[in-house]
Amino acid sequence: MTDKIQIAHGGGGRLSSQLIDDQIVSRFGDGPLKGLPDAASLPGINGRIIYSTDSYVVQPIEFPGGNIGNLAIHGTVNDISVAGGKPLWISLSLIIEEGFEMSTFRKVLDTIKSSAEECGVKVVTGDTKVVAKGQCDKIFINTSGIGEAFSEFTLNKTNIKPGDKIIVNGTVGDHGMAVLTAREGINIINGPESDTASVHRLVESAREFGGHVKFMRDPTRGGVATVLNEIVENNNFGIKLKETELPVSPGTHSISEILGIDPLALACEGRMLLVCSPEVSEKILQKWKKFPEGKKAKVIGTATEDRGMVLLEAVTGGTRLVDVPLGELLPRIC
């Protein structure tokens, strides 16, 4: 076994099949991947199909709280979940840079395997390519996922009405801040840790509230600020947040104060925003708090009559706009 990935590992020859057998088949080969067919053959499903894809190019690939493998599963699982679906199958495409440490590669694959198992999804098809040094950065991953839509949800942001509540399942901005600290070498005790996690159980637990749930979205790039502005855009309502109600972890809070970064503009990878009618918000909170990924869930704001505007009531009692961040605060955060 070589300790670094070589070009020949992607060449289709002996090294290539050895890599696939040792690393991929050994971890994911017990289902549709068995025998390495060119395409996965999957059973039919009853409801609407939900299909999503995402590429992961985070730098550095390991950061406090996780690695690129967590993101590759959680990101796609969460996209399917917040679209109102149950994630079932996932594809896994790897583009690896020549010279990538085999030990780190194994670690990433272990993470992918354990994350997929936790989320109840199966890796059913995939691909591995190796490119020359400098042509990618360590490892890039693409995953696509297929899910089955839950029939209870009729999600549409135009259903939102003034008075509806906005819930988040935990502290905001931790992933973006964790990547930033890892990249810039900011070492502080009790610093931020990525929130990377799956929200599929939370979505499933909200099924019984059916039509009361108006909209769901995971605030990844651009953070909560961007998602909320997208929700109100061209619609007949606005949103008002309360700064005192925003859950922010101490690590993220400290660094955002030092650097002047608004946690609302930072990416999350294990959070979801849910907009629901006021009569069910407390019930959803109660359900969510039973899961570790929903323990710190909170109602952070309310839909208002202020058309198209996201406002925040600051700690002082004064109000300000919550704007969409100008550009990407940090490139390559997922």
């Binding site: 009531e313 600051a314 700690v315 002082t316 004064g318 109000t319 300000r320």
Partner: peptide
């Protein structure tokens, strides 16, 4: 002043 909405207070 803008961020904390102080003018409005």
């Amino acid at each position: 002043i803008a961020r904390y909405g102080i003018r409005e207070l």
